[in-house]
Design a protein around this nucleic acid. Structure first.
Lengths: 338, 338
DNA sequence: CTGAAAGCGCTTACAG
DNA sequence: CTGAAAGCGCTTACAG
């Protein structure tokens, strides 16, 4: 692999000059620029980004630590983040925490070691040591989707979706369809989204004069297996819930698995709704009522905020909102008179 | 962010010594090692991987260029690749080509510029210039899932799934259920998997004495929209097919969208099968018959082969096989007597 | 067992 | 407009 000195030699100039033409420095004579460019092309030279980074103290790379790549919500988020970053000349390095705090810390560590210019995190837990260090030591950072609070974290912008309104709409929808015994498959209490969705659900129930009994709150971890397990517990109850709200799409998948394995039917035996909408929800049996986040906007806003920080501009938090997409999994939609 | 000289200073030793303890060099006295480690801990020092890479000519990072992150098959592949790489002390940088040759080339370019130790590629097209350069200039490379042929590419191992047997099983299954007019939504002819699946389908049809008429081959691009479009064409035919085989899961999604929008039913009006199995296929209406790849094994084998090349060992190609998972989307399974 | 020094491949003041 | 030189933060022969 040719280095800059090979180009310099072939073009008959110094490496400084080669560097200048590569970096579009204005003070280069046209003919020497042409000579250099010809040499670059001849050799198929590509600047070594590692060396450049060491010298300039910037990598033009952003780190993204997400909770679970296999969750379509995060895949879509990752994709929109990459698109937005690329548009602005940055590449992104993804770390998949798989909902495990230790893995999250591992990725934050390697990302920081590789000196990414900024870090986008959707924290799995209450805050792993390396992440706190990174934030405090001044690594530009932005939280997406989920966030954590703590000393030295006040400056970290949060780009997220507020799901409260949509959850309230969901409860109203369930109530209108006659459901009274409602249950929720919660995400980890260590995550903000985990807590928010339960809180919002509980408040909405209260608003409708309903109570959320302790055995109608199941503790999940945002992964399919936990959805299965919690649903099994619900269905074994003497008075099983009439409707189950899975607070993410993977737990909804687990819930469907469990319901189906018992030969029960949605919504006749149990209604089901999910947080996060995915294309397949249109084609499931029955189509699943879901709360949709503006995922693309979320990714773009997060990248914008992070790059603002990286480039020394102030960045503000952004809160978008989710919306209810009613389908048939909770019963016949209001509009349809039989 | 502290550098190695800060650690040296605090520990009262030279940077060489610090470097030695960091790299587990045996020739270091225990007490000086302890002093250094204490200084490292005090300062929260983390070695700069950029500097280390420049010096050692290795990044301990692998590049993975996949065709489409939003395709669950590739997401799962990426995940297994990352797991396998991490187990062996490598991290992986993913580039999403989004089935676009230009984007693929962009990612190969940045990855090579960042001097990843090896490249895993699932090529989108017939071979973009930068990828050919990389292979020829000796960047360790392995093709996963899809591959390309060309000058200088003979040395590149291919880790893939042979779907021919499973496609033949699918055709047998469709034939047994009485379907005769079979159609296929093909992937891009520039991809090996695109061609293989059509070839295998055609051969199997021949084996059963069936012909594949030209208007029963629809050209897709492995994305949902094309599945929709091709299915629309099929259904507009004077003699629409009795069964449609979508050669990936996203095109199957598009096909379902189109079928549903016309108020038609699967499998009564059209049978449907897909290449690549995903968890949601169990819950669609009806559950979808699919061809499942051993995705995890594929990722692991690919990483093993690539790291072998990176570390100077010989690496061989690996071919795994896919299997048919019959569900209800093609008609009642053989076993069930009404 | 430890240190001084060279060098990885760039960029960028500083001179001219 | 161009070049010589320093330096980014490491690692690793080479001496001792």
């Amino acid at each position: 692999m040719p280095a800059i000195k090979d180009v310099a030699q072939r073009a008959g100039v110094s490496v400084a000059t080669v560097s200048r033409v590569l970096n579009d420095h204005p003070a280069v004579r046209t003919d020497t620029r042409d000579k250099v460019l010809a040499a670059v092309a001849d050799l198929g030279y590509r600047p070594n980004a590692v060396a450049r980074s060491l010298r300039t103290h910037q990598t033009r790379a952003l780190g993204l630590v997400i909770s679970d790549v296999l969750n379509p919500f995060f895949t879509e988020l990752a994709r929109s983040v990459e698109d937005a970053a690329r548009d602005r000349g940055y590449s992104v390095v993804i770390g998949n925490a798989d909902e495990r705090p230790d893995l999250q810390d591992h990725h934050v560590g390697t990302l920081v070691d590789r000196r990414i210019d900024g870090l986008l995190v959707s924290p799995t837990d209450g805050g792993s040591p390396l992440m706190l260090d990174a934030a405090r030591s001044g690594t530009p950072m932005v939280f997406v989707d989920r966030w954590i609070e703590g000393e030295g974290l006040d400056e970290v912008p949060v780009v997220r979706t507020d799901g409260r309104g949509a959850v309230r709409d969901l409860v109203a929808h369930l109530h209108a369809l006659g459901h009274r015994r409602l249950a929720i498959i919660a995400g980890p209490a260590a995550t903000t989204t985990g807590r928010e969705r339960v809180d919002a659900f509980r408040s909405a129930l209260r608003e409708f004069g309903l109570a959320l009994s302790a055995d109608h709150i199941g503790q999940g971890d945002f992964q399919a297996d936990s959805g299965r397990r919690v649903t099994a517990r619900f269905l074994d109850l003497p008075d099983p819930p009439e409707a189950i709200f899975a607070t993410d799409n993977l737990m909804a998948l687990g819930a469907m698995d469990e319901i189906r394995s018992r030969g029960l039917r949605v919504p006749d035996d149990v209604a089901l709704a999910a947080f996060d909408d995915i294309p397949w929800f249109v084609h499931t049996d029955p189509p699943i009522t879901a709360i949709a986040q503006p995922t693309g906007d979320l990714g773009h806003a997060a990248v914008r905020a992070l790059i603002d920080r990286v480039e020394g501009r102030p960045a503000a938090s952004v809160t978008l909102s989710a919306r209810l997409v009613p389908r048939r999994s909770c019963g016949e939609p209001e509009g349809s008179t039989p």
